[in-house]
């Protein structure tokens, strides 16, 4: 079992104060990393043996903790109301979930989650050369959140159609927004040189 504190030590050696915090314990430990050192941190973690990128996702914290409704008076029989959570440092948080899997025994040697706070669309460096499934995962983050990834070409939508306007999982995208209508298109004809491949 990989100890998160040991990993924190290794990362501190590699990138110094680029890793800002460690929270959680055991399999749910989360290392927060700065945008400038995320690539190095992930390379170090891959070298430490984390061979599987389980998930790469994003959370939009716009408006987090702002409760528009006043809190009702607490009552012994009503669901508890919680105090407002702390305000997050930036708007977007990229979450990289890594797993160290022993291929021979099928047991997990450790899990770690790396959280990267980004404040705009510049996102982070692409890691698709470290873990190939990051290709599709980064395209999905771009598609739904608008967070870009540098160091890779071919950043296009994956779940939504190319003419979609906006990035729907952002908190400022209302759930009932209507998209502009697009009419039917001529199907590309391969025999006349048309390209069947999905458009960027």
């Amino acid at each position: 079992m990989k100890d998160p504190k040991a990993l924190l030590g290794v990362l501190r050696d590699a990138i110094g104060l680029g890793v800002t915090a460690l929270s959680g314990a055991g399999d749910d430990a989360v290392l927060s990393v700065e945008q400038a050192s995320i690539r190095r941190a992930l390379e170090v973690l891959k070298a430490q043996g984390f061979n599987v990128l389980v998930d790469l996702t994003c959370v939009d914290y716009l408006g987090y903790g702002k409760d528009e409704r006043p809190a009702p008076p607490s009552h012994p029989y009503l669901p508890q109301r919680w105090a407002s959570p702390p305000k997050p440092p930036h708007r977007f948080k990229l979450v990289y979930r890594l797993l160290d899997l022993d291929a021979a025994s099928g047991l997990e040697r450790g899990r770690i989650t790396v959280a990267l706070w980004v404040f705009d669309e510049r996102g982070g460096p692409s890691v698709r050369d470290l873990w190939p499934n990051a290709d599709w995962l980064e395209r999905e983050v771009w598609d739904l959140f608008g967070i870009g990834f540098t160091g890779r070409g071919d950043l296009r939508r994956i779940l939504l159609y190319p003419e979609f306007v906006g990035h729907p999982l952002r908190k400022d995208y209302p759930i009932d927004r209507r998209q502009p209508l697009i009419g039917p298109k001529e199907a590309p004809r391969p025999e006349e040189g048309g390209d069947l491949r999905p458009a960027p």
Binding site: L53, D55, A103
Partner: peptide, 19 residues
């Protein structure tokens, strides 16, 4: 399979007993 994060029957059929 491991590089792509594949799990489940696909990974098990490749020889990794991860469940």
């Amino acid at each position: 399979a491991l590089a792509y994060g594949v799990t489940g029957p696909l990974l098990r059929s490749a020889g990794v007993p991860y469940d």
